[in-house]
Computed example of a mutant assay.
Amino acid sequence: MSPTATDTTLPRIEAKGVTVRFGGLVALDNVDLQVPPASIVGLVGPNGAGKSTLFAVLSGLLTPSSGAVLMNGRDVTGASAQSRARRGLARTFQHPELFPGLTVREHVVLGYRVRHTRRRIWTDLITAGGFRSAAVEEDARVDEILAALHLSGQADQPVAGLPLGTSRLVEIARALAVDPNVLLLDEPSSGLDARETDELAATFTRVVADHGVSLLLVEHDVDLVLGLSDVVHVLDFGVKISAGTPAEVRADPAVRAAYLGEGPEGNTA
C-alpha cells in the first residue's frame, strides 16, 4: 500500500494498551493514543513522564513489553522503523540528526528521493553525483518546502555550523519532503525564537490543511501545543492522566496537579 493511500477513517497511528518496563521501572503503563487523519495531536507532560519512550515505541525504535502499535489499522508492533517509514511514518528528533557535509537543500532533496527515487540515495550520499540532476517535480517540491520553512536564503549553506533552531527546521523540512502521512515531531520549537515559533506553527497548520498530513507533537512549550492541537494527551509518570480538547485539558485538575503541584481543590500540595 502506498504511504498516502490510507483509509480516511482509521487512525494514522495508534497505541493500544502500551506498557514499557525497564527492569522494575514501569516507563509506560497501559497507554492508549490515537492520531486521526489530517489532525494535530499534542503529547505533553512533565520531565520523565514517558513522552520520549512512547515516541520510541511508535516509531519502531523500542518494542513495548505489552500492548500494540497500529498504522492505518494494521498491527506494526514488531515492524522495524524502516518498515514503518515505508508505510508513511516520518519523525524528527530532539537533537537534529543531519549530515554535516551536505547543504540545507541537499537534505531536503534526500528526503524527497527517499520517497520517490530511493535507488538514487546511494549515489547521492556516497558520490554526490545524484545531486547534479533533478526532475522538475523534485525541484518544485523542494523549493516549496524550503520556502514554507523560510529556508530559501540558506539553501546552499552546509548544515555544519548552523544555529540549533535552523538545524531543527532543516530536519523538519527533510521529514516533510518524504511526503509522510503521519509525522512525529520531537520538541520542534526548541531553539527557535518567538517569531520563528509562530511561523513554524503556521507552517504546521498549512501542511495539515493542504496535504492531509497528521502530526503528533511532543513539546515543552505547552502553550504552543494547546494553541495548535485538535486533541491533547497528558502523561505523568508513564500514565495517561488526561486527554481531550485543549480547553478540556487546560481545565483538568489532574493536569494542574501534575504541572503545578496543586491538590484537587487547587491548593498547593
Rank of each mutant, 00 (worst) to 15 (best):
Thr53Val: 12
Leu54Ala: 07
Leu54Lys: 04
Phe55Tyr: 05
Ala56Leu: 10
Val57Arg: 09
Val57Tyr: 07
Leu61Tyr: 12
Leu62Glu: 04
Pro64Leu: 04
Ser65Gly: 00
Ser65Arg: 02
Ser66Asp: 06
Gly67Leu: 07
Gly67Met: 09
Ala68Ser: 14
Ala68Tyr: 13
Ala68Asp: 13
Val69Tyr: 02
Val69Gln: 03
Val69Cys: 03
Leu70Asn: 13
Leu70Asp: 13
Met71Asn: 14
Met71Leu: 12
Met71Phe: 13
Asn72Ala: 14
Gly73Thr: 11
Gly73Phe: 08
Gly73Gln: 12
Gly73Asp: 15
Arg74Ile: 15
Val76Pro: 10
Gly78Leu: 09
Ala79Gln: 14
Ala79Trp: 11
Ser80His: 06
Ser80Lys: 01
Ser80Phe: 05
Ala81Tyr: 10
Ala81Glu: 07
Gln82Trp: 11
Gln82Gly: 13
Ala85Met: 14
Ala85Ile: 14
Ala85Tyr: 13
Arg87Gly: 14
Gly88His: 08
Leu89Gln: 09
Leu89Tyr: 15
Ala90Leu: 02
Ala90Ile: 05
Arg91Lys: 11
Thr92Leu: 06
Pro96Val: 02
Pro96Ser: 02
Glu97Trp: 05
Leu98Arg: 11
Pro100Arg: 05
Gly101Gln: 09
Gly101Ile: 02
Gly101Thr: 10
Thr103Trp: 06
Thr103His: 07
Val104Lys: 01
Val108Ser: 08
Val109Ile: 05
Val109Cys: 00
Leu110Glu: 00
His116Tyr: 11
His116Trp: 06
Thr117Phe: 13
Thr117Glu: 13
Arg119Asp: 10
Arg119Val: 01
Arg119Phe: 06
Arg119Asn: 12
Arg120Lys: 05
Arg120Thr: 00
Ile121Cys: 01
Ile121Ser: 08
Trp122Pro: 08
Trp122Ile: 10
Trp122His: 14
Thr123Trp: 02
Thr123Ala: 08
Thr123His: 09
Thr123Arg: 09
Leu125Ile: 04
Ile126Met: 15
Thr127His: 01
Thr127Ile: 03
Thr127Val: 00
Thr127Asn: 02
Thr127Gln: 01
Gly130Ile: 04
Gly130Ser: 09
Gly130Met: 00
Gly130Trp: 03
Phe131Ile: 00
Phe131Arg: 03
Arg132Ala: 01
Arg132Gly: 03
Ser133Tyr: 01
Ser133Phe: 05
Ser133His: 06
Ala134Pro: 01
Ala135Cys: 12
Val136Arg: 12
Glu137Ala: 13
Asp139Ser: 14
Ala140Thr: 08
Ala140Met: 04
Arg141Gly: 08
Val142Gly: 06
Val142Gln: 05
Asp143Met: 11
Ile145Trp: 03
Leu146Gln: 02
Leu146Ser: 00
Leu146Met: 02
Ala147Met: 09
Ala148Trp: 06
Ala148Asn: 07
His150Trp: 08
Leu151Asp: 00
Ser152Lys: 03
Gly153Pro: 09
Gly153Lys: 07
Gln154Ala: 12
Ala155His: 02
Ala155Glu: 04
Gln157Val: 15
Gln157Met: 12
Pro158Glu: 10
Pro158Met: 11
Ala160Gln: 14
Pro163Asn: 05
Pro163Leu: 07
Leu164Glu: 09
Gly165Pro: 03
Gly165Met: 01
Thr166Tyr: 06
Ser167Asp: 15
Ser167Gln: 14
Arg168Val: 01
Arg168Gly: 04
Val170Cys: 12
Glu171Thr: 04
Ile172Leu: 11
